[in-house]
Design a protein around this nucleic acid. Structure first.
Length: 205
DNA sequence: TTAGAGATGATC
DNA sequence: ATCATCTCTAAG
């Protein structure tokens, strides 16, 4: 049975996820990232409620599929770093690099449930009419948290560059729904998107 | 509430 | 030409 959980829960200081957490197949890491908390040094944070795995050389939809380029270079580095890319001429999207150094794997963070720093998020996203518009999409959450190309390549584990992902004791869902990834044309049948069921802050609706 | 299309520019 | 998207507008 699926039950809604108290989403606007306490944010413990939390421990940054260790590098070993990311040093696994992105299809394992992605669902494990659900209910973890993306934190910025300026006090904005949100619980991760939707993710997608991108699997490098075996995944035609991954930026890294055709090998290393200037844009995707960070994906080919060690796990635990943040890969931020610009798309559709307008939007920044944020990934956690996963797998082995050189593999080109990652997890796209697609939606957050805002936890702290809501006022600053609303200021950063004046178009958002409701709080569920603040971080319910990969381009929305980067705008809400102030993530752009400047953060490409920062270390999420060391957390010295202003962003990290922490475990505040809120467990991931046991069996999160797996669905097709959004906005891709190749490998569009793979169920490599996971989300927290019944959460208002998941994208689409 | 939903469907459709425009915006806008880097990438390879 | 395509793109790991978002927002507005028009219609129901």
């Amino acid at each position: 049975m699926t039950s809604s959980v108290p989403q606007r829960a306490i944010v413990w200081p939390g421990l940054p996820l260790p590098r070993a957490f990311y040093h696994r197949d992105p299809r394992i890491v992605a669902p494990q990232l659900l209910n973890k908390v993306l934190v910025s040094a300026d006090g904005r944070s949100g619980r991760i409620v939707e993710v997608e795995a991108y699997c490098g050389a075996i995944d035609p939809a991954a930026h890294s599929y055709r090998g290393k380029t200037a844009r995707n270079a960070v994906m080919f580095g060690p796990p635990g770093f943040m890969y931020v890319y610009f798309t559709y001429g307008m939007h920044w999207c944020c990934n956690a690099v996963c797998g082995d150094d050189g593999e080109g794997a990652g997890v796209l963070i697609r939606a957050l449930e805002p936890l702290t720093g809501l006022a600053q998020m609303r200021r950063a996203r004046p178009r958002a009419r409701r709080d569920s518009d603040l971080c319910s999409g990969p381009g929305r959450l980067t705008q809400a948290l102030g993530i752009s190309g400047i953060q490409n390549g920062i270390d999420l584990v060391a957390a010295q560059a202003g962003f990290t992902i922490v475990d505040d004791g809120f467990a991931p869902p046991r069996k999160p729904p797996g669905r097709t990834r959004i906005g891709i044309s190749r490998a569009a049948d793979l169920l490599w998107r996971w989300y927290v069921a019944d959460n208002e802050h998941v994208s689409k609706r």
